[in-house]
Design a protein around this nucleic acid. Structure first.
Length: 275
DNA sequence: GAACAGGCAACTC
DNA sequence: GAGTTGCCTGTT
């Protein structure tokens, strides 16, 4: 039944589906045959599509308001934040990436997904995450769509490396298990982390085996919703070297440095392509 | 078959 | 502390 709902979410100016879902922050959203996107997030299945410069979704009006507006961070004015970034290059990146939203994803899902991501490409990360959900998540239906929720850390904390063998995620399996155990034991606590400044979040997250600066910063930005984090991977390193002065400090972008990071990253990866 | 892929840990000096 | 190497696996 859910699939027949059509609820207005926001304008296509505010939320560009392709840019938002294809910029590497998430792994469970995919272009569908209807010309929109389908995904599983926050334990729910959702479809989104563009129609006459508006974005519609398959949620009820209540859920659209209460859940998805927040998930897509629609109450934050990205344009005014962006106008505060100084420099010609960052403005060019921001213009190119207009419509990108930084998704407010689940903490554990973000942590696990980015542990899987190390030394992997996106198609393969997506495959691992889907298998992970299929094998250990909860099977649910939404209209005629069947989907699997992201497995809870409680479930995963009880598994062994052998249980994760079907994922073919190699040496990352033990990282996932130990991370799940640390969450289950309370050694790492989302609610506590959220009270901390980003530097302390990073320090705590790096106690998890398999989590270094890059993964920690992705978790801070996408999973703990602290936008001062500025994840630096090989693409970002290249972009920074080529376009910024030596010893440039990304923290100078301020409390929304993470948004600047997304724009720079997206531009580095997708410039040269149309659209 | 070797090199590589959107890192990390462990080890070296 | 900066630099190197092994790690699982699938793809080119």
């Amino acid at each position: 039944m859910n699939n027949t709902l059509k609820t207005y979410l926001c304008s296509a100016e505010e939320l560009n589906l392709a840019k938002t879902f294809e910029c590497g922050q998430c792994f469970r959203w995919n272009a569908n045959e209807k010309g929109g996107y389908s995904g599983v997030a926050l334990g729910k299945y959702l479809e989104l599509w563009e129609e006459n410069s508006d974005i519609f979704c398959s949620a009820s009006p209540e859920e659209a308001q209460k859940i998805w507006r927040d998930y897509f961070d629609l109450d934050l004015d990205y344009l005014s934040i962006t106008s505060g970034f100084r420099g010609e290059y960052i403005q060019k990146c921001a213009e190119f990436g207009r419509g990108i939203r930084i998704l407010k994803q689940d903490f554990w899902e973000t942590l696990a997904s980015f542990i899987f991501s190390q030394c992997n490409n996106i198609p393969r990360i997506k495959k691992i995450v889907e298998t992970f959900a299929r094998e250990h998540g909860e099977k649910k239906t939404s209209g005629d769509a069947i989907f699997y929720t992201f497995p809870s850390y409680k479930t995963i904390s009880k598994l062994t490396e052998k249980d994760l063998a079907p994922l073919h995620c190699g040496y990352r399996a033990k990282y996932i298990l130990s991370a799940a155990k640390m969450l289950e034991s309370g050694e790492i606590c989302e609610a506590h982390l959220k009270t901390l400044p980003a530097d302390y979040m990073r320090f705590e997250l790096k106690k998890i085996s398999g989590v270094g600066d890059k993964v920690a910063d992705c978790v801070i930005l996408f999973g703990l919703h602290n936008m001062s984090a500025f994840p630096i991977d090989v693409w970002m390193k290249r972009a920074l070297i080529e376009n910024f002065p030596k010893n440039f400090n990304p923290a100078s972008f301020g409390e929304y440095a993470g948004l600047a990071q997304q724009y720079i990253f997206n531009y580095a990866r997708n410039k040269g392509e149309e659209n």
